[in-house]
Design a protein around this nucleic acid. Structure first.
Length: 427
RNA sequence: GGAGGGGUGGCCGAGCGGCUAAAGGCAGCGGUCUUGAAAACCGCCAUCCCGCAAGGGAUCAAGGGUUCGAAUCCCUUCCCCUCCGCCA
């Protein structure tokens, strides 16, 4: 959510941001509703002030023993009381409208974000590692995986449907090893691990910005107020909802593993093959809570931490800054990490690291108390994948494949697989 | 699922129809005192909304109701605690 002051007093700034994002958020409608809201509020407050004053008089008259005068005044207030109730109803409706519309305004991009309408305007910041060279035609993971007997889309389709996968044997173990490996790496560098519910309530999703606008991307458990988490960002960022944290305890750096569930509505026909786009996937997430002064520093820290995972695994990647038209709703600035996939012959997103500034903090009531006291302030929230586990598994298969179809296990991972060095076909 | 108890300011806790935005304590901030600190004493110290301001309004888990007037009475929901039942 944006600061109300901003769209009230400088709507042109917000309008410009909306255009840069190619957003059709209802700014004009919002401002009209707000206009009505303020008028009603002033009118109602005046009437309430009068009622309050005269109600106190009633009490005073009675306690002074002036029963008749008090009784007369009491009777005369009925109408005022009624008209207040009516106005109040109206105000509630208008306020509700303002609050509803407000939730549809996306965050304002940071000045350092490149302008552009789609991913072609993203800016490459740096490239790490060399894509491996093969003396043969490298295969894609959807060929390698089933051939190794570790990836099974057919049976996944049978027990669930499209966009699900079954991992067998070494594949299942590799997935689990990756999760543990990533969490260990983050913990060893000071991130605090947290294990959270995989179902969350509606307020959390409003807090991080998935709702109300992106309901069709989510799975909801029928007959309940629970949603399956689309990312650990949701439960973890909302952990301190309604709290006021001491500045001394900032920044907070958290990491969490959760499965993620996404409806992927509207992505029919995109990435239908393989593990790229699934309804369910594992992810280790990094979440930072920071002061406004340090949040952009923290974005660098967070991004470098996500990169450390790729580096430890020896996977070539590049870092791009998303342009205004490609950024997510809540983000002010986003770096994507794109890993090299030899089977596809391109870089593919494997992590997305964002500073949401105070956008989520306003929605989720996340505040901190400045050093030496003073008014509580909204803090800044950041999140990033560290990393998407399924896509990491893909990257390993495709980058470490050998001509005979076996796959070398990256050094750093071997201790998590009982010293195993090679993925060879399973019976 | 059944029975009971409870949700008040950063924290603890009193209030149980008008004199209460809310006693008291703790924490915090400022001051007196002190070489400095502690102690003692004095003062300040919730959030949000409208308003240029003066000021006004709202908020005692949430929503509804009774009333001229509700933190206080009634109803509903949510959450927490205790006991019983069931359960991985």
């Amino acid at each position: 959510m944006l600061n109300r002051e901003l769209w009230r007093s400088r709507p042109e700034v917000v309008q410009k941001a909306l255009e840069a994002r190619r957003s059709e958020a209802p700014l004009d409608e919002l401002r009209q509703a707000d206009e009505r809201f303020r008028k009603l509020q002033a009118e109602l407050d005046g009437k309430k002030a009068e009622l309050n004053r005269r109600s106190r008089e009633v009490g005073a008259l009675f306690s002074a023993g002036k029963r008749e005068e008090g009784e007369a005044l009491r009777r005369s207030l009925g109408e005022l009381s009624k008209s207040i109730a009516e106005l109040e109803k109206e105000l509630t409706a208008v306020r509700g409208e303002v609050e509803r519309l407000e939730l549809f305004l996306p965050n304002i991009p940071h000045p350092s974000v490149p302008e552009g309408k789609d991913e072609r305007s993203n800016r490459v910041e740096r490239v790490w590692g060399e894509p491996p060279r093969f003396a043969f035609q490298p295969r894609s993971h959807w060929d390698l995986g089933p051939a190794l007997g570790i990836l099974d889309f057919e049976r996944a389709g049978r027990i669930a449907g499209a966009r699900f996968a079954v991992l067998w044997g070494q594949g299942a173990a590799l997935e689990r090893a990756l999760i543990t490996f990533m969490l260990d790496l983050h913990r060893s560098r000071g991130w605090r691990e947290v294990y959270v519910p995989f179902l969350v309530n509606r307020e959390c999703l409003v807090g991080t910005g998935q709702l109300p606008k992106f309901a069709e991307d989510l799975f909801r458990v029928e007959g309940t107020d629970f949603y399956l988490v689309p990312t650990a960002e949701v439960p973890v960022t909302n952990l301190h909802r309604g709290e006021i944290l001491e500045e001394e305890t900032l920044p907070r750096r958290y990491c969490a593993y959760t499965p993620c569930f996404r409806a992927e509505a509207g992505s029919y026909g995109r990435d239908v093959r393989g593990l790229i786009r699934q309804h369910q996937f594992d992810k280790v997430e990094l979440v930072h809570l920071a002061t406004p002064e340090t949040s952009y520093q923290e974005l660098e820290v967070l991004t470098h931490q996500a990169e450390a995972v790729l580096q430890a695994l020896g996977l070539a990647y590049r870092v791009v800054t998303l342009c205004t038209g490609d950024m997510g709703f809540a983000a002010a600035k986003t770096y994507d990490l794109e890993v090299w996939l030899p089977g596809q012959g391109c870089y593919r997103e494997i992590s997305s690291c964002s500073n949401c500034e105070d956008f989520q903090a306003r929605r989720a009531e996340l505040k901190y108390r400045p050093k030496g006291g003073g008014k509580a302030q909204y803090l800044h929230t950041l999140n990033g994948s560290g990393l998407a586990v399924g896509r990491t598994l893909i990257a390993i298969l495709e980058n470490y494949q050998q001509e005979d179809g076996s796959v070398v296990i990256p050094e750093a991972l071997r201790r998590y697989l009982g010293g195993q060095e090679l993925l060879a076909p399973e019976p």
